[in-house]
Write a protein that binds this DNA or RNA. Structure first.
Lengths: 362, 362
DNA sequence: ATGAAAGCGCTAACAT
DNA sequence: ATGTTAGCGCTTTCAT
């Protein structure tokens, strides 16, 4: 394995091209940018030299000069999470289609939060933030730098946003369980995360409580548990719920990952799903379908695409009206009638084929 | 919803800070970069002004000046595919941990191929390419620009790479099927993709053919089908295989996505899996577990992490020895003995819980 | 139509 | 220890 020689940065510059073509750098710049008037003869010659030398304009220098980077930053706390990746799947192609580079600002640790909205300045033309909201101070700085910002999965009164109605989502999930005759419905949510300020879980909880109240149930604090995010945490939360003298017959988890953890815990404790326990998740990430999980589906990929759309509009100087995306209850195999344990889904097929037997209820 | 004022780029520059602090720009630069000798008094004063003005150094300007961007480019054809996303999950945190920005070069259309290795020059300090190999010419340019490049999922004789043994993978899959007593084993692969030059599928096919030959089977071209990549394409390929007078009793698909398509087609045609048809995939993407798919697992996330590791070493000027990652047969519910149709897996549980009943065979 | 030169914000070499 | 200045590679006036 012969190593590739690492020559010093002997990249062709615009000056080199100009010299070789016997013209000024200004002229070269003009042909590159398809600018106004350059005689057909010189244009051709310059183009020739460019091809010959394999010249590629230095994006950094151009950015410094024009003040435009042609890059968009995407702030993504926990890029490793399926729901975030799924949103990004909507972001990336659209951005590329619009000729923008995508710079990912992945935050996996709380310390990184502080830099989130600061470090991108000067590096990007616009910002898309997933689930994270800027402080007033950060917002002001962004405005001063004329960097438009769009929020996905977070509402804001001064920024274009792409959101869903979390409260309604919580209500939908709970009503589904209520309709199935469940009386003791547990709640497995995320605890308020100070560093990031994610709030969707608590709004979903509000919906859950509203639905319960509307059905005449009084609040039972011992049925509401908050834990960390993710699968393992969900399992832990579920254990605390299931390990009670009078365990719930159904659990609403505020994310699919958490719900998957609940299923894991149930399996572990010998609690049958959906016979003994019904489970509803939230998000409808890809695996939910294969896990046969009943869930509140939100258009993840579309949210990313819509965010880009808004950002592009803002970048073009136009208005960027916030958008609210629809929610949908997707019934699969993890929910059933309280007494009978008979699955609500059309057919109680194995989870692998359950995907084909999904009833969607809006 | 009050719009945020978009002021003209009134960002604080280093000059402004210098002026405000009554020092030269050089001094400010020194304190920013923690450079050598600056009197404690001035350092403090400068720091104060910086905080007060909320000054943030312009990364672009710095990059132009130093020739370092502190960014790494990741070339990812089909970022939207699960396997690619999974690799990226290994990349992102490590890169962030090392203080590098991640710039994603997503290629979804063939035309973008040409720019892949060119446009990043000058924008990044190093490059990580997933499944895509540079042409000799591109490689030369990269070398001239002193931009190190690491390949993931693609071998190369002059570049550091992170690979798996695709041939062995194909062999492993086929041997598993052979051991289960299958005689008519179909192959569902990707057709050579001219634009991208992905070659793993055909290497896996080589392994498949080797295993067959070693078992004394003679090649049956009509059992080998090439189709597009992805789920729908996999279903189509499977239909062509299953729609024959003497259909195979097992199919090796060169990717999990393809395998999922095969399952879909089987379901559609009323072919029971694994009773009538055994299916083996490749990759072990997240959903494979939930779909209960038997597959050849490759360490996707680790491959991304290893790639970053190598790139970091190259960036530090050190040697970056290529790495080969291990493969593993993961038996789940889609493979069974040829005659009996009895599942090979420990327990033939529903796919949802199949995850817990997985036998790993190396 | 095109060359020359200023300037984008920063770093680093050079003075002092 | 710290101010001054010359680039980094490009775009964009301003001349001509």
């Amino acid at each position: 394995m012969e190593a590739v020689p690492r020559g010093g940065a002997e990249v062709t510059t615009i000056a080199r091209v100009a010299q070789e073509a016997g013209v000024g750098v200004g002229t070269v710049s003009r042909v590159i940018n398809g600018s106004s008037a350059v005689s057909e003869a010189t244009r051709r010659r310059v183009l020739e030299v460019i091809a010959e030398l394999g010249y590629e304009p230095n994006a950094t220098a151009r950015a410094l000069s024009t003040g435009q980077t042609n890059a968009v930053g995407v702030i993504a706390p926990f890029f490793t999470e399926p729901s975030v990746t799924e949103r990004l799947r909507g972001v990336s192609p659209r951005l590329a289609g619009a000729g923008y580079q995508l710079i990912l600002f992945d935050l996996e640790r709380p310390e990184q939060r502080d830099q989130a909205f600061r470090s991108p300045i000067g590096r990007v033309d616009g910002l898309l933030s997933i689930s994270l909201s800027p402080t007033p101070d950060e917002l002001e700085r962004l405005a001063a730098a004329a960097v438009p910002l769009v929020l996905v999965d977070q509402s804001h009164d001064r920024l274009p946003t792409v959101t869903i109605d979390d409260v309604e989502g919580g209500r939908l999930a709970t009503e589904h369980l209520l309709e199935l005759g469940h009386e003791r419905i547990g709640f497995a949510g995320d605890q308020e995360d100070g560093a990031y300020g994610f709030t969707s879980s608590s709004r979903r909880r509000t919906g859950y409580e509203q639905a319960l109240a509307a059905a005449g149930h009084r609040p039972e604090p011992e049925l509401e548990r908050l834990g960390g995010h993710g699968r393992a945490a969900g399992a832990e939360t579920a254990r605390r719920l299931l390990d009670r003298p009078e365990p719930p017959t159904a659990i609403f988890a505020t994310s699919d990952l958490t719900a998957l953890g609940v299923l894991e815990a149930a399996e572990e404790l010998g609690v049958r799903v959906p016979e003994d326990l019904s489970v509803v998740g939230f998000d409808d990430i890809e695996v939910a379908r294969y896990a046969g999980l009943t869930t509140i589906a939100q258009p993840l990929r579309e949210s990313g695409a819509a965010g880009v759309e808004l950002l592009l509009e803002a970048l073009a100087g136009g208005p960027a009206p916030s958008r609210r995306l629809p929610l949908e209850l997707v019934v699969r195999g993890t929910t059933a009638h309280a007494r009978t344990g008979r699955s609500f889904a059309v057919s109680k097929a194995s989870a692998r084929i359950a995907a084909a037997h999904t009833s969607r209820v809006t």
